[in-house]
Simulated assay, not measured.
Amino acid sequence: MIPAVVPCTDRALWDEQVDRFQGHPQQLWGWGETKAQHGWSVDRVLLDDGGTTIGCAQLLIRRLPFPFRALVYIPRGPVCSIEHTGAVLNSLADYAVSRHRGVALSIEPDWDRDSAYAGAVAEAGFRETSNTVLIPRTLILDLTRTDDELMAEMSKSTRANIRKAIRSEIEFRKIKNESELDQVLGIYHETAERAGFGIHEDQYYRDIFRNLGDSSPIIGAFDGEQLLAFTWLARSGSTAFELYGGVSAEGNKRRVNYGVKWAALQAMREDGCVRYDFNGLLNDGISDFKKQFAKHEDMLLGTWEKPLSPFYPAYSQAMPLARKGLQAARRTAKALAGRARTLLRAARGR
């Protein structure tokens, strides 16, 4: 039997289903709400098989120029058990065509590359692509392990820095309000400028903080009222997923970024999560820092697309070029913004 695709408009029911299937926090209602405020449309659907829900998927829809019409994208989804994967994917592909006229259905599931899911995805007509949004190479920690077991996987210097932070007068706790969020964003701008990566406008982060609420905790390292470092997460019932992190120059000097990472692991375990995903590993300094917390790496399934239109071949060639152009524009905008901040600081110093 082909499962029926049933739209869901009830936030409580939706999040309940995501957690029931041990889904990823980027499938939660609040994450979709934020994306809907920043260029995407959102469609949340349940897969019904004879009155039983066998899966769910939060679809993000991006309108494209004619003749491509739309891209339908599922971040860290869909959510279903292995035995229903093929039926769920086929129903979602049909729905993406009939409801959204998509040129392709793109998925980046929270499934291991070497799991049985990989074969089911290929059998459903999907093909792997390099048009990646979420990095599949990552580090996932098992939070059911003890503190000693987790620390045994870390480098000696990492353990030492964590213990030093714990013994210090630094307070590690969750961010409480918008005023403290302002400090978070200030440190994030500082970190991005120092490390050379691009960021969104502040309103995007404020929308995440508001829309996800308790499902998007920020763990901060405080010296009195001054924030020195933070780790910002999204969490579902089972999985904690790092979104952003930052450390001030003073916090970096005192190495409190090690302590705040450890505090985040502890907090997510206390919240009931059993997996902690560091959200991507690249060949950069930030990834080198992440890799100090374990001796292993994890590889998720990656990005897979199912062609839904005769125009898909043209789309698959145009998409990488468009993305390179967008990245170049972002780099230019970032450089201009950095120069503007430098000039503003200089003007204030006069």
Results as ranks from 00 to 15, higher is better:
2 I>V: 04
5 V>S: 01
11 R>S: 14
12 A>Q: 09
13 L>R: 11
16 E>H: 15
16 E>V: 10
17 Q>D: 08
18 V>Q: 09
19 D>K: 05
22 Q>Y: 09
28 L>T: 10
28 L>A: 09
29 W>S: 11
29 W>I: 00
30 G>L: 08
30 G>C: 11
31 W>Y: 15
35 K>P: 03
35 K>S: 00
38 H>Y: 05
40 W>C: 04
40 W>K: 04
43 D>W: 03
44 R>F: 04
46 L>A: 08
48 D>I: 10
48 D>T: 11
49 D>Q: 08
51 G>A: 10
52 T>R: 15
53 T>F: 10
58 Q>G: 15
59 L>P: 06
60 L>N: 14
62 R>K: 14
66 F>T: 15
69 R>V: 15
72 V>L: 07
72 V>S: 06
73 Y>D: 05
74 I>L: 00
77 G>N: 10
78 P>E: 00
79 V>R: 00
82 I>T: 09
82 I>E: 14
86 G>F: 00
88 V>T: 01
91 S>L: 03
92 L>E: 10
92 L>H: 13
96 A>C: 10
101 R>Q: 03
101 R>K: 13
102 G>W: 07
102 G>I: 04
103 V>R: 06
105 L>C: 01
110 D>G: 14
119 G>C: 13
119 G>L: 13
119 G>F: 12
119 G>R: 07
122 A>F: 03
127 R>G: 13
128 E>N: 05
129 T>K: 01
132 T>W: 09
137 R>A: 12
137 R>L: 13
138 T>G: 00
139 L>S: 11
142 D>V: 05
150 L>P: 11
155 S>W: 09
157 S>N: 06
160 A>V: 02
166 I>Y: 14
166 I>H: 15
171 E>F: 01
172 F>I: 07
174 K>W: 08
175 I>W: 01
176 K>M: 14
179 S>Y: 08
179 S>N: 01
179 S>H: 10
182 D>S: 11
184 V>G: 07
185 L>G: 01
190 E>R: 07
191 T>H: 01
195 A>D: 15
196 G>M: 02
202 D>S: 05
205 Y>E: 00
205 Y>V: 06
207 D>M: 07
207 D>G: 02
214 D>G: 10
217 P>L: 02
218 I>C: 07
222 F>H: 11
223 D>C: 04
227 L>E: 03
230 F>P: 13
231 T>H: 15
232 W>K: 15
236 S>R: 03
236 S>T: 06
242 E>Q: 09
246 G>Y: 02
247 V>C: 13
248 S>H: 04
251 G>A: 03
252 N>T: 08
257 N>A: 13
259 G>Y: 12
260 V>Q: 13
264 A>N: 05
275 R>A: 07
276 Y>S: 03
289 F>S: 03
294 A>S: 05
294 A>C: 12
295 K>I: 08
296 H>Y: 02
300 L>P: 00
307 P>G: 02
309 S>D: 10
315 Y>C: 12
316 S>I: 05
319 M>A: 11
320 P>T: 03
321 L>H: 15
323 R>P: 09
323 R>M: 14
323 R>S: 05
328 A>E: 05
334 K>P: 01
336 L>C: 07
340 A>F: 06
342 T>Y: 08
343 L>W: 02
346 A>I: 07
347 A>W: 12
348 R>A: 15
